[in-house]
Each structure stands twice: as C-alpha cells, then as structure tokens.
C-alpha cells in the first residue's frame, strides 16, 4: 500500500523504539536529512541504524547519535574527521558498532531484499572482520559466510517519484537507496518532486514502486 504523506513528521510517526532503521546516503550525498530530523523529533529510541557511515558534523544521523537514540550502528566507515558525536559515544561505550566491509554491507542489504538466506564471499577472508565466521574453499578461493541485513524501516532520498511510487535518483546520491528500499519492511522516501503517472520513462525507473510504502515531498 502506497501512501503520499504531507509532512516528514507523519511519515516517521509509526517508527517504534527498538526498530532497525536503514538510512540511505554515502556521506551527505543521498542522506535524507529531513526524515532523520523528523525521526529525532519523534523521540524514537533504542534504534539499530544501518548506514555506510556514522554521521558527519552536527546534522542528520550525527544528531541522532548525539541524542543517544542509536543503540547500535551497522556501518563500514564510522571514523571521519567530523564524526565527533559517534567518536564520543563509542569511546564512552555508549554505542555498539558492527563494522562491515562496504561491499558486504551492500550485498547483505541486497540479499535481504532479494530473499537470499546467506552467501559466501572472498571479501574479508583472513581478516579480523571474518573472525569466528564459517569459511569454505569455493572456486579456488577461500570465502566467508555472510547473512542478510533486514530492517523494519528504510529512510531514503530520491529525486522524483511518480504516483505509482516509482523512483529516480540523482548522480551518486543514488548509492544505498535502491537496495535499502527493497530490504526494509516499510520504505519511506523523501523526494524533491512528485510527478504524474506516465511522466517517468519506464525504461529509466531505478526503484519500482513495489518497494516503496510512503512518499513525502521535501522542498
């Protein structure tokens, strides 16, 4: 069921404490700042957040972490020059970190959306990030057992939606949007523009509307 929602506050109102929330974006590109701000205002807490990073500066995901709403981060690259809110929480032992190689992060999200129970990959073999994981020699390469990452909700940013929920993105802001939309039980997309049915060339649709539940236009 697809809903067009008037405000970001209403769009995130049903996100419950303890949820696993995927948040699109790589750095600031594609990060749905308005939805994240609304999630902060909603008061939802004890969240597990899946994102490539762990927030930059004093905005978006960084503020969610600063305010203590995030119990656990699943990400590939938390440490940046301006990731001070994550750094503080991590050093104080107030946030859990599951560090995942970036390609494993993407593939585990994709696998969740595609109904794949698990997969083997050479990435990470022989490293501390594969410690304790099952390994197998497949096609002449040692490979590591990895499981999908599912989520209750995905918050993503796209350029345009049509009235069927089909999405197109802009340049490298696409990043995690399409795979998170498929992996979450409930996907909320903020878009810059909502266009009529037929206004998007079907050949160019990136995320089919079947993966999208709520759309909110953000100026």
């Amino acid at each position: 069921m697809l809903n067009f929602i008037d405000t970001v506050g209403e769009a995130v109102a049903d996100i419950k404490d303890g949820s696993t929330v995927m948040i699109g974006g790589f750095g600031n590109a594609g990060q749905p700042f308005e939805l994240i701000d609304a999630l902060l205002d909603s008061g939802a807490t004890d969240l597990t957040v899946v994102n490539n990073n762990a927030g930059q500066g004093d905005q978006g995901l960084a503020l969610l972490i600063k305010e203590g709403r995030v119990r656990k981060m699943i990400c590939s690259f938390p440490r940046q020059s301006d990731s001070w809110h994550f750094d503080t929480k991590f050093k104080a032992g107030e946030i859990e970190l599951e560090l995942v190689p970036q390609g494993n992060l993407a593939e585990r999200i994709r696998a969740a959306g595609a109904g794949i129970g698990a997969f083997f990959t050479p990435t990470g073999y022989g490293t501390m990030l594969a410690e304790g994981k099952e390994t197998r020699l497949l096609d002449g390469k040692w490979q590591v057992f990895e499981t999908p990452i599912h989520a209750d909700v995905a918050l993503i940013k796209a350029l345009k939606a049509d009235r069927k929920g089909n999405l197109v993105y802009r340049k490298t802001a696409r990043n995690f949007g399409p795979i998170m939309a498929a992996a979450a039980k409930h996907t909320i997309a903020q878009v810059s523009e909502i266009v009529p049915i037929g206004a998007l060339d079907p050949e160019n649709v990136v995320t089919p509307g079947i993966y999208v539940n709520s759309i909110v236009k953000v100026a």
């Binding site: 190689p101 990435t123 073999y125 490293t127």
Partner: peptide, 16 residues
Amino acid sequence: PDAIPAVGGAMDLATG
C-alpha cells in the same frame, strides 16, 4: 586499542 576501526571498501577492492 583506542583506535575507532573504519574499513570502507578496502577489503572489497583488495579482493576483487
């Protein structure tokens, strides 16, 4: 021990 680990795509690039 006090370093915050961050791996990004390094392991995928190295392997692939």
